[in-house]
């Protein structure tokens, strides 16, 4: 499959990229790892006249803790997350998710920033970042903006990023004692989109009372969603299997899956419930281990 013709631009600074984007407007698309955009171009679902390859802009590939925040540069690849010592030690939820994205070769190229900026509810990072209550840093010709993840996803393939904006960093509150997260998804085969996926980030105190919780869902809603009602049911309460079961039930009820080749609506609600129960338990296990 041959994509439509385009002109290729390869800026070396953000400023050059913004200038090109302003010049070509809607005829241009930014390209990073390309593992969402290029398949769409090969199918000619997307035919941009100008490709602005931002992947050679230096300094946007890092995973570091700074001032109580975990900062992930937008060009960090999924494989970088998967093999990061910092993530393996302190942020296992990020290792869970990276290992379930695409396949090993795709992960060598696909970027975390791209996974979010694409705005696809079938992608896995949106649910994880919703659960982690992340902050998105976007830079554009007008300067830098901080966008809370709860305000980032606007609709189908639509985000809070403006036409010329580039997502540059993802900020996550640094993990602390009592905090644990987990991600899991059901997929028909490696590389498939999730039939359903659940991300949980949980903080408990020494008596197993929920201090804070975030639950995000993958591919069972038109827009990446947090299960606020389940979070409210858990917060401030002592964790029990009955309560976790209740949160799972709410997740199954509150999502809006559509029937497709991956299963019926009922089936997706059912596995969303079960996955939520399992993933809360996994996060709880990790949270307790950190106390």
């Amino acid at each position: 499959m041959i994509p439509a013709s385009f002109d290729y631009h390869c800026p070396s600074t953000l400023q050059e990229a913004f200038t090109l984007s302003q010049e070509f407007g809607e005829d241009a698309k930014y390209l990073s790892g390309g593992h969402s955009l290029i398949p769409m171009m090969k199918l000619r679902f997307s035919e941009p006249a100008h490709i602005i390859d931002i992947s050679r802009i230096q300094g946007l590939k890092y995973i570091k803790e700074e001032d109580g925040i975990l900062k992930i540069g937008a060009f960090t690849t999924e494989a970088d997350l998967e093999f990061s010592d910092l993530c393996n030690d302190k942020y296992p939820i990020l290792v869970d998710v990276s290992k379930l994205i695409g396949d090993p070769s795709v992960r060598n190229k696909a970027t975390v920033g791209g996974n979010l900026a694409h705005g696809d509810a079938a992608n896995d990072h949106p649910a994880v970042m919703l659960a982690l209550k992340a902050n998105i840093v976007a830079e554009g010709p007008g300067g830098t903006r901080n966008i809370p993840i709860a305000e980032f996803f606007r609709g189908l393939f639509e985000t809070a990023l403006g036409q010329n904006d580039i997502l540059t960093e993802i900020q996550i509150p640094a993990t602390k004692a009592g905090n644990g997260g987990a991600y899991n998804k059901i997929e028909r085969k490696v590389g498939d989109y999730a039939t359903s996926g659940v991300a949980v980030n949980l903080t408990v105190d020494t008596s197993d009372t929920v201090v804070d919780i975030g639950i995000g869902l993958t591919n069972v809603n038109p827009v990446p969603m947090r299960v606020s009602r389940a979070e409210e049911a858990l917060k401030g309460n002592k964790l029990t299997q009955e309560l976790i079961e209740k949160a799972g039930k709410i997740a199954g009820e509150d999502c809006s899956p559509t029937a497709d080749l991956r299963g019926s609506e009922d089936y997706k609600r059912s596995i969303t419930k079960e996955l939520t129960i399992r993933t809360i338990n996994k996060a709880w296990e990790r949270a307790k281990a950190s106390l």
């Binding site: 290729y8 390869c10 390309g34 290029i38 090969k42 494989a79 396949d103």
Partner: peptide, 24 residues
């Protein structure tokens, strides 16, 4: 980008060469 028959090493990393432009 599913089957991996086009896998090559790009700067040492395995990648699917059907989903990369030559200019990249």
């Amino acid at each position: 980008s599913h089957c991996g028959a086009c896998t090559i090493l790009l700067n040492g990393d395995s990648v699917k060469s059907c989903t990369i432009f030559t200019v990249q």
